[in-house]
């Protein structure tokens, strides 16, 4: 197992060293997706604003102070994670010709997708900032904790995508199972509902859904200007478990993936 993990670490180290490749390819990916459109990647901003606006209009019952900011930040993090999971599950299958035709490390594809998610999230972040400004949510020192929260999400995401990419290659049906879970996930994760008003299953999911804490480490400092200690501890622990699992899976399957595609 030690050999497998050190192989995975070497793969990731090699991938990180080829930043020119995954940064360039990620920019091409985002550009290609909107090349024929009039507004280009601005659609990412528009989509986010439409999504967040719909949630705010439909679910704001006036009982939660700062509800628009709550939804705006929660949705920003949730879309980043859910996009990563749904794209990650088919990642190696989509990169089949590259994997079977080049000697690039597998981590290149993970880093390329992470970079793509970050670029897309950049447009959503602009939309989030617009909503916060519109509702007069002004920056405070407490927001600095939120930056730490964002860093944790960014560190966790490539690990989660490695798990998804390997699992999706070994068990292709997973893409449909995960697709359905992601659709449900927006209701089972506190994106637009608040724990204070949660009852029954919602209350259970608030505590036992690990994604809750990745949303809270970014959102609570912005909403209330405080350091959510419990959310940080759980998010960091979940990130460590995610990466340990990712390294084991990448180490075990790194040389087998090419035959599984």
């Amino acid at each position: 197992m030690i050999n497998a993990i050190s192989g995975a670490v070497a793969d990731i180290r090699k991938g990180l060293g080829m930043s020119g490749v995954w940064v360039a390819l990620a920019h091409e990916d985002v550009g290609d997706a909107h090349r024929r459109t009039l507004l280009g990647p601005a659609w990412l901003l528009i989509n986010y604003l439409l999504f967040a606006g719909t949630f705010v209009v439909i679910f704001d019952d006036g009982r939660t102070p700062g509800f628009p900011a709550y939804v705006a930040v929660g949705l920003l993090v949730w879309l980043f994670i859910s996009d990563g999971v749904s794209q990650g599950i088919v990642l190696f299958q989509r990169e089949q010709s590259f994997i079977q035709g080049t000697v690039l490390p597998l981590s290149i594809y993970i880093l390329r997708m992470t970079m793509q998610l970050v670029i897309r999230a950049g447009y959503a972040l602009a939309g989030c900032a617009m909503i916060l400004l519109f509702f007069h949510v002004m920056p405070s020192v407490g927001w600095l904790w939120s930056i730490l929260g964002v860093m944790i999400v960014l560190v966790m995401m490539p690990g989660l995508m490695i798990i998804c990419a390997v699992a999706g290659t070994v068990f292709p049906d997973l893409q449909f199972i995960v697709g359905n879970l992601i659709r449900l996930g927006v209701f089972l994760t506190p994106v637009f509902w608040v724990p204070a008003t949660a009852v029954g299953l919602h209350k259970i999911f608030y505590h036992w859904n690990p994604f809750t804490y990745f949303l809270e480490v970014v959102r609570i400092p912005i909403m209330y200007g405080i350091f959510p200690e419990r959310a940080f501890v759980i998010a960091i622990a979940a990130t460590a478990v995610t990466w340990l699992t990712a390294l084991m899976l990448l180490g075990i399957y790194r040389k087998k993936i090419v035959f599984l595609l």
């Binding site: 091409e28 550009g31 290609d32 090349r35 590259f98 080049t102």
Partner: peptide
């Protein structure tokens, strides 16, 4: 594979 790595739109 001669097409490998080539971006059709680029």
């Amino acid at each position: 594979n001669i097409q490998l790595g080539f971006r059709p739109e680029a």
